[in-house]
């Protein structure tokens, strides 16, 4: 077994331990794994199914049901364009299209250089400042198409 696999197994083991192997905490377990690896590696899901004693089909259903989870590796920076109503009426669609053009990818995908993953989110709850673009943990409020390039450039 490679070092990477071993590290993954240990990390997932610790997360399962943290939630005391409680199957009710499946979503939280997956969230912690995703927080660590930015996506849900297949091997991790298999380990979760053994650790919580739930069928793999259930783990896979849950992992593909919730929007927050990704089964594919994501970029170094996660861009979340808020599609909440307040942002929508203030023109978030145009901002999203501009980002898509700048990065050359559609929402839901990752740039080839693995720098950015572009996703949309249904309301981050910062409605007063819409349109909102959240990059990693940073909120960019009152976004417009002409601010997109400078925001993207600020990430390395």
């Amino acid at each position: 077994m490679g070092d990477e696999n071993k590290e993954l197994e240990e990390t997932v083991g610790q997360i399962l331990e943290k939630y005391r192997h409680d199957k009710g905490m499946l979503v939280s377990v997956l969230q912690d794994i995703q927080a660590k690896y930015r996506y849900l590696p297949k091997e991790a899901l298999k380990q979760v199914c053994q650790g919580l004693l739930v069928p793999l089909s259930q783990v896979y259903s849950v992992a593909t049901f919730f929007k927050a989870f990704s089964l594919l590796p994501r970029g170094r920076h996660l861009i979340n364009v808020c599609l909440g109503t307040a942002c929508h009426v203030r023109g978030t669609d145009k901002v999203l299209e501009k980002i898509e053009r700048e990065l050359g990818i559609n929402a839901g995908s990752t740039t080839k250089d693995l720098k950015f993953t572009l996703e949309t989110v249904n309301c981050v709850g910062a409605c007063a400042l819409g349109p909102i673009v959240k990059v990693d943990e940073e909120y960019h409020g009152e976004m417009s198409t002409d601010k997109v390039v400078s925001v993207l450039k600020s990430y390395t």
């Binding site: 259930q58 259903s61 049901f65």
Partner: peptide, 10 residues
């Protein structure tokens, strides 16, 4: 009792 298949995605 084997839960081999399930509904996936949303």
């Amino acid at each position: 009792g084997v839960s081999a298949i399930s509904l996936v995605n949303r």
